[in-house]
């Protein structure tokens, strides 16, 4: 892992990877949108609102996936002072917050016609809202210090404390009574969802993952350039 800790090497490596992840994002999302909107059947109970699932569920998966990755990076940043780990968490946070926002709003737009309510304060919805605030809190905290290193350290601690929320989100539908349905894809005994709906779901999830990798690589490049500018300005100021 430490071989990739060198920012100059990272810049070269990411330049080689980016065209592939960007291409994969475009292809996966075009195919995914086609089968979600046209190539898949409507639900016999929910009609066409089931198509909201192909955005809502992958966005929910991503909101957790991104958070777990950020928490792992935070641990690496705190333990090994890994320079790219701190930058990764900072670069990924807005993307994770974006996916959480998409998950919350599409959930609301799906709940309104199907549950008859936009929002309920139950365990699943509330814990995802807390996840959204964790993302926002992390972003605010990291930028709240004059010294960027103190900011990332405080942010990393917040990320590690907030990880307790991840299993709460995952198991909230089993532990408490809720309007939200229990897991139907990632569960013991295999998915209980038909293949014609599982395929668009997985293609969209892959598309979102490719999008995440692409945008994070771009943001990391920008962060590294920003750090270089900071050091140049500092050495200039010190003569």
């Amino acid at each position: 892992m430490h071989r990739f800790a060198n920012p100059a090497r990272f810049q070269r490596l990411s330049a080689a990877i980016l065209p592939w992840t960007a291409g994969a994002t475009v292809i996966l999302l075009i195919v995914g949108l086609y089968i979600s909107l046209i190539g898949s059947p409507r639900d016999y109970q929910q009609g066409d609102t089931v198509r909201i699932m192909y955005i809502h569920v992958p966005a929910a998966w991503m909101s957790l996936f991104v958070y777990v990755n950020m928490a792992i990076a935070a641990a690496c940043g705190l333990v090994w002072k890994h320079p790219l780990a701190d930058l990764f968490a900072k670069a990924a946070a807005p993307v994770g917050a974006g996916f959480t926002l998409i998950c919350l709003v599409t959930g609301s737009l799906w709940g309104a016609p199907m549950w008859g309510t936009w929002w309920v304060w139950d365990a699943r919805l509330t814990s995802v809202l807390i996840l959204f605030f964790l993302y926002l809190g992390y972003m605010a905290l990291v930028n709240a210090f004059d010294d960027p290193q103190r900011g990332t350290r405080a942010g990393n601690v917040l990320l590690l404390v907030g990880i307790v929320n991840v299993p709460i989100i995952k198991f909230s539908v089993d532990w408490w009574n809720t309007l939200h349905q229990p897991a139907s894809v990632i569960r013991m005994g295999g998915p209980t969802i038909d293949g014609s709906m599982l395929v668009p779901l997985l293609v969209m999830a892959l598309g979102f993952t490719a999008y995440f990798i692409t945008v994070v690589l771009l943001r990391l490049r920008a962060e590294i350039v920003q750090r270089k500018i900071q050091t140049m300005r500092l050495t200039e100021a010190q003569g």
Binding site: R42, I52, H56, W110
Partner: peptide, 11 residues
């Protein structure tokens, strides 16, 4: 969208 255009398209 089977009458659910507002919900599906805004998502």
């Amino acid at each position: 969208m089977g009458g659910y255009a507002a919900y599906v398209w805004s998502s």
